[in-house]
């Protein structure tokens, strides 16, 4: 499967398909459906210093070609993730993960990143400065270039593994944020997180989501993600993991053409547990159709 392989900061992935954080738990739930070792990697559930329940329910609202979630970073906290979730994952998965970390202060990001950095199972530390579902943290670091750079610098100072910064699309100029984190030492960028959205019940007129707003994801946001990946690829020289509405092998090719080195599949895992495996199986056929020999050769070809 050499033709599917890609490289992220010296880490060779069998294929570019990575389930996105928050849509795949800690991976092992999916081992019921297929051998998850076939994935390029897995981005694990957003982890914070303390255990979090998250927001009240309803946390999910369906949309046309997508969904809104307002989970709010439910996770058992970094210590339990390392002592309980990672061992469970290791029973069924033998590759490295993209460990997604979130926080409410620079200190919290630093503490979680330091702990993740010591774990063998962690290949990349993905710093989520873009969660739209928590107040005073998360996205507030991702909407300001200085704050984004500050988190990046602080995390880079205490880690040895590649650090990817996960960006929010809920900004006026994503290129400015991307440049700021690159200058601050980020090894790569994951983009995009969800778009802020809302839905209202037709009978009652009230918001469907208890938290009123949530993150909109799914195929409907793909053009926004493609546009932003294209813009950022032009402006930075670090690798991009492209995220946003990817549901098919064709979507992977399109996202890589825009500039992504690897991709993450999010919402689609919720509607079809086999989505990532299906994409991996379809990729060679679709590559043949478009005369693509290896995926590496198409990264950023829109710019050439």
């Amino acid at each position: 499967m050499e033709r599917l392989s890609v490289e992220l900061c010296g880490w060779k992935l069998d294929n570019p398909v990575i389930p996105a954080s928050g849509t795949f738990g800690f991976g092992y739930e999916f081992a019921q459906f297929y051998d998850i070792n076939r994935l390029g990697s897995i981005a694990t559930k957003g982890t914070t210093r303390e255990s979090r329940y998250g927001n009240p329910t309803p946390r999910i609202a369906e949309c046309d070609r997508g969904m809104i979630n307002a989970v709010g970073l439910q996770n058992p906290g970094i210590d339990k993730v390392i002592s309980e979730e990672f061992p469970k994952l290791k029973e069924v998965y033998h590759k490295k993960v993209v460990a997604n970390v979130s926080g409410f202060s620079v200190e919290e990001y630093v503490e979680c990143a330091m702990k993740m950095d010591k774990e063998d199972i962690v290949g990349i530390i993905e710093i989520n400065i873009s969660c739209p579902n928590v107040s005073h943290g998360g996205m507030s670091f991702g909407t300001d270039p200085q704050a984004a750079a500050e988190v990046t610098r602080a995390v880079k100072a205490v880690t040895t593994k590649p650090v990817f910064i996960k960006l929010t699309p809920n900004v006026t100029d994503i290129v400015a944020i991307a440049k700021a984190v690159e200058e601050a030492g980020a090894d790569g960028i994951s983009m995009i997180n969800t778009l802020l959205g809302a839905r209202f019940d037709l009978k009652t007129g009230k918001p469907i989501i208890a938290n009123i707003m949530g993150g909109f994801s799914g195929p409907a946001i793909k053009p926004v993600a493609l546009r932003m990946v294209y813009q950022v690829y032009k402006a930075v020289s670090i690798p991009i993991i492209g995220i946003g509405g990817i549901a098919t092998a064709e979507d992977v090719i399109e996202m890589m053409s825009a500039g992504a080195t690897a991709i993450q599949v999010g919402a689609e895992n919720c509607r079809n547990p086999y989505a990532c495996m299906q994409i991996i199986e379809d990729l060679p056929k679709v590559m043949d159709r478009y005369g693509i020999k290896t995926l590496k050769e198409i990264i950023g070809r829109a710019h050439r």
Binding site: G25, Y53, T57, R59, I60, V71, N269, C270, R271, P273
Partner: peptide, 11 residues
Amino acid sequence: GCGFGACMGCS
């Protein structure tokens, strides 16, 4: 969301 424990939508 998913119905099988991955998304934490129905906690």
